[in-house]
Design a protein around this nucleic acid. Structure first.
Length: 563
RNA sequence: GCGCCCGUAGCUCAGUGGAUAGAGCACCGGCCUCCGGAGCCGGGUGCGGAGGUUCGAUUCCUCUCGGGCGUACCA
């Protein structure tokens, strides 16, 4: 199906006539310039400035050696209004802006298109470009915490946005099932196992002290009893850690699924070691001169790529670092044919960005194809009080507990409501509240209210006319036009959110649409005895419902029919 | 010390170099004999500070103050 993005279409049409006017003015010798500058057609903030506006004259002033206003005047004179059917008026305003005023006929055509597209409204044209979004990638050594939760909501929403922007999207979870922390995990599990089977063993100082480790060990004992006590340590650890990893990965999968997230691919770090890809990439980088030896360790020359210091890739004890595996991992990603790779990382990993991009360059890959979306950390509140998190005592609130307490919808909405750059204060009490203070309810209520109107209509035996027969030009009050206008923005909002990696834009958008709907609802009645008007308003309700539902889908939040 | 992110209304936050900087909450005052009042309408002296680039800076650059994070042969 052909996608609908009326805003983008209008911008392109206006840009075309502006370009045409520029060339025409140039030919007539009215305007002298080398290149058309990189100007924009934008929707002005103020309604008085038209439906669309361009800054082309301001950007051209220098090379044309004329005032912006004079240039704008020339351009305006070269444009004939009948080039675009809806174009009603052009004016020069402010410092030299060209403002374009359209009549609303394009707007009234949109409802029928939206109804035809249904749950595909918001999707843009297919781009045939593969993008991978890797997110959460939590260590399988503990529970999912609030950072993982925010990463999950941001990553999954971003993946949804990219799909609607026209990309082929793959969601990937990188399982850190190798390396140092797995060793420590194994030691911790073994110590707890021996302790719980009656042996006096000291727990490692840097071990995983959480309750969940003890619970895992209890599960192992339930299944295998004391049978591991007599084994040699290596065999015992192998059995225990294998069991624990499986249990943790199952837990992570189940919890994220409850959070509305399903991955296309789970990628094992250990597989990179098993296949020899880590050694392979180290050897290749060494041969190319990107690696040197110092005090028995191998170092990657990340300083030459703007990093603060060089990074160890293989330790003096012969074990590779997590960075070595990460290089092999990113090489593998691009060998899988992605045009674009996005990693969602916690801000505490920002120091890793420069050297990762440096490694890309060393490998001959284009670092611009890798975007790392850093998100600031989460502070959890309950009412006014901060909920302290402590790894040592294991008293953190985990994602499964959060979902249990506030629900998936509120949690997902809250995590994407703010820009990833912004610290997030998550108030669990507010997220649970069924009141006007809680934004997720405000939006869901709008959707439920519309559903209720249709239930009322059905109960009264009202039948909506077929879409083609409805006269949508009757939707001419300010509230109706404002709502319709914002609904028309949806596909373009998706494109902007994709381009700027801004999932929070969609949360704000859906709040906007809900607000405009509530305002309409309080000013006008849908069900009346004016049948043509009633039909037009029912159509408006239908497209509002579709837009709210599709935008909420993008956020992974449900759109209830009643509350 | 050095590096990254953030400082916008009382609070929590939006704001792709553009025209008169917005929203929610809180606070005050209004609005249903009528489709769900979990709603609507009205009420605002705010871009931490100082320079710079630009026709134009909340946005870009430098410095400065404040907060967060990082700065391991951890991940």
């Amino acid at each position: 199906m052909k996608s609908v993005n009326a805003i983008e279409t209008n911008k392109k049409n206006i840009q075309a006539i502006v370009n045409e006017a520029l060339r025409s003015a140039q030919q007539k010798g009215l305007l002298s310039f080398q290149d058309i500058p990189d100007y924009v057609i934008e929707v002005p903030r103020e309604k008085e400035h038209g439906d669309f506006a361009s800054n082309v004259a301001l950007l051209m002033a220098r090379q044309a050696r004329m005032s912006p206003k004079a240039i704008a005047g020339i351009i305006m004179d070269e444009i004939s209004l009948d080039k675009i059917q809806e174009l009603e008026k052009i004016e020069v305003a402010g410092a030299g802006f060209i403002n374009f005023f359209l009549n609303n006929s394009w707007l009234f055509e949109i409802p029928v298109q939206i109804v035809k597209m249904g749950n595909k409204y918001g999707y843009n044209d297919y781009l045939n470009r593969k993008v991978q979004v890797e997110f959460v990638s939590a260590n399988p050594t503990g529970n999912l915490h609030m950072g993982n939760a925010r990463g999950g909501a941001i990553g999954d929403t971003l993946a949804n946005i990219l799909q609607r922007a026209g990309y082929d999207v793959e969601r990937e979870f990188y399982v850190n099932d190798a390396g140092n922390q797995i060793e420590i995990f194994a030691e911790s599990l073994e110590a707890r196992y021996l302790q719980l089977t009656g042996n006096d063993i000291k727990f490692p100082d840097n071990g995983y002290a959480g309750q969940d480790v003890i619970q895992t060990v209890k599960n192992i004992i339930r299944e295998k009893g004391n049978s591991l006590v007599e084994m040699d340590s290596e065999t015992r650890r192998k059995i225990i850690v294998e069991y624990a990893l499986q249990e943790k990965i199952d837990y992570i999968k189940a919890t994220l699924k409850a959070f509305g997230i399903e991955y296309d691919h789970w990628f094992s770090e250990q597989s990179l070691h098993d296949s020899g890809k880590v050694e392979e990439v180290i050897k290749w980088l060494t041969d190319q001169g990107f690696i040197y030896e110092h005090e028995g360790a191998l170092w990657f020359k990340s300083v030459q790529y703007g990093d603060e210091k060089d990074e160890v890739i293989k330790r003096a004890n012969g074990l590779t670092t997590y960075f070595a595996a990460d290089i092999a991992y990113h090489k593998d990603k691009f060998e899988r044919g992605f045009d674009w790779v996005i990693n969602v990382w916690g801000a505490d990993h920002h120091g890793h960005v420069a050297r990762m991009k440096g490694a890309m360059q060393a490998l001959g890959l284009d670092p611009a194809k890798l975007d790392i979306l850093l998100m600031q950390l989460v502070r959890l509140y309950r009412g006014g009080n901060i909920v302290r998190m402590s790894k040592r005592t294991g008293t953190t609130i985990s994602l499964d507990e959060l979902i249990e307490e506030v629900g998936k919808d509120a949690a997902r909405f809250f995590f994407v409501m703010r820009s990833p750059d912004s610290h997030l204060d998550f108030d669990m009490q507010l997220a649970k509240e069924k009141s006007q203070e809680n934004p997720v309810y405000y939006v869901q209520y709008a959707h439920a209210r519309i559903c209720s109107i249709f239930r009322q209509a059905a109960a009264a035996g009202v039948k909506m006319a077929s879409v083609e027969e409805i006269d949508s030009t009757l939707l001419n009050s300010q509230e109706e036009i404002d709502l319709l206008r914002r609904i028309a923005d949806f596909p373009d909002e998706i494109l902007i959110a994709a381009r700027t990696l801004s999932p929070h834009r969609i949360a704000r958008y859906v709040l906007d649409v809900a607000g405009l709907f509530h305002s309409f609802y309080n000013h006008h009645r849908v069900l009346t005895n004016d049948e043509p008007l009633q039909n037009a308003r029912l159509l408006l309700m239908q497209v509002t419902q579709i837009t709210l539902k599709n935008a909420l889908d993008t956020l992974g939040v449900s759109a209830p029919e009643q509350m």
